[in-house]
Computed example of a mutant assay.
Amino acid sequence: MPARRPGPLLFGALVVVSACGSPAPGPPPLPAPTSESTVDSTAPSVSATSEPAPVVAVRDVVDAAEGAMPPGMTLGVAVLDVDTGELVEGRLGGRQFMAASLSKLIVVVDMFDRRRSEGREIAEADLKLVDRALSSSDDGAMSALWGRYDGLGAVRRVAGQLGLTATRPPDDHGEWGDTTTTAGDIVRIYQHILRDMAAADRDAVVAALAAAQPVATDGFAQYYGLLGPGPSAQRYAKQAWVPWAPAGHLLHSAGVVHDTRTGHTYAMALLSIQPRTSAQAARDRLTAVAAPAMGLLGAGSTGGTR
């Protein structure tokens, strides 16, 4: 994407469940995969004979990420325990950021939801574009989907359906990357994918994210942040990046981490604006932020692809 100059950023209303509050009754268990051939979008069960591991507190995961933030980075963090519904946002978890390629996930969710609710067909060729948009972050594929499936309306519909008060479409119809969102809103979208979408649709989204390629179609290395060790059935994410004048780089990593020790599933979003530096340095910095948070969840991160 071309370099952008940041415009005024708005702060939307938030609904956050405090880690220290009284937990509400949890939602029903995550649905099981439809077949062994699909990517497992739910956490593996814990053996009944093993000593139960303590569930990691959502607040601890947020604190671990924010504690690793280097000087000068603007970082929005949010983590949601999909099994309990508990959401904790960091200090800037409700700050609006340019979504860049995270808008691809929003449009795909709307496509699948409307297919179920309104009977709208999705051509086989467009399903291939979905895979390219999510796994290779193909901008051409996204532009085609944005035009064919009412991208502006898609952002509004998903935001309205899920109560995402800070996710808004771009002012310029054609600039899908200028969609704005927050870390808190993005983890709510992942909760919707895992909890509410039809199993086949959920598995299609997860499979595409878990197939993230080392290098995107524009040549940008994608294995950083939550994908520092690469994608797997235990962790998958949508990455986003764009040169950001004059700050340097806008770099996001947002996805899902399964804690196989406890069976809990966590949606995590790390949205950042970084001081002027090389693309690889920016990737390494966000990977360093993700590493302690993922380590708490038993999915430790290493350095990304260069």
Score class of each variant (00 low, 15 high):
residue 2 P to W: 04
residue 14 L to I: 14
residue 15 V to A: 14
residue 16 V to R: 09
residue 17 V to A: 11
residue 17 V to Y: 06
residue 18 S to H: 07
residue 20 C to F: 06
residue 21 G to D: 13
residue 22 S to P: 01
residue 31 P to G: 12
residue 36 E to A: 06
residue 41 S to K: 03
residue 44 P to I: 03
residue 51 E to A: 11
residue 52 P to T: 09
residue 59 R to A: 14
residue 61 V to M: 13
residue 62 V to E: 07
residue 69 M to Y: 02
residue 69 M to K: 10
residue 70 P to D: 13
residue 71 P to Q: 11
residue 73 M to V: 15
residue 74 T to D: 12
residue 80 L to M: 13
residue 85 G to I: 11
residue 88 V to L: 08
residue 89 E to D: 09
residue 90 G to P: 11
residue 90 G to S: 11
residue 90 G to C: 12
residue 92 L to D: 03
residue 93 G to Y: 06
residue 100 A to I: 01
residue 102 L to R: 00
residue 103 S to F: 00
residue 106 I to D: 04
residue 110 D to S: 05
residue 114 R to G: 01
residue 117 S to G: 05
residue 118 E to S: 14
residue 122 I to Y: 14
residue 135 S to F: 01
residue 136 S to F: 05
residue 137 S to M: 01
residue 138 D to L: 00
residue 139 D to R: 07
residue 147 G to V: 10
residue 151 G to L: 07
residue 153 G to R: 13
residue 153 G to W: 12
residue 154 A to Y: 04
residue 157 R to P: 01
residue 159 A to Y: 04
residue 159 A to N: 04
residue 160 G to T: 02
residue 162 L to T: 02
residue 166 A to F: 03
residue 167 T to V: 09
residue 168 R to I: 15
residue 169 P to W: 01
residue 178 D to F: 08
residue 185 D to H: 00
residue 186 I to Q: 00
residue 189 I to A: 04
residue 189 I to H: 02
residue 190 Y to G: 03
residue 193 I to P: 09
residue 198 A to H: 15
residue 199 A to H: 05
residue 201 D to V: 04
residue 203 D to K: 09
residue 206 V to T: 12
residue 207 A to K: 13
residue 207 A to Y: 06
residue 215 V to N: 12
residue 216 A to K: 06
residue 216 A to D: 11
residue 216 A to H: 07
residue 225 G to M: 08
residue 228 G to H: 02
residue 234 Q to I: 00
residue 235 R to W: 03
residue 235 R to K: 14
residue 238 K to D: 02
residue 242 V to K: 01
residue 242 V to A: 15
residue 247 A to G: 10
residue 260 T to L: 06
residue 262 T to S: 14
residue 265 T to N: 02
residue 268 M to G: 01
residue 275 P to Q: 00
residue 275 P to C: 00
residue 276 R to V: 08
residue 276 R to C: 08
residue 279 A to R: 05
residue 290 A to K: 05
residue 290 A to R: 07
residue 294 M to G: 04
residue 294 M to W: 03
residue 294 M to R: 07
residue 296 L to Y: 05
residue 299 A to E: 13
residue 300 G to E: 14
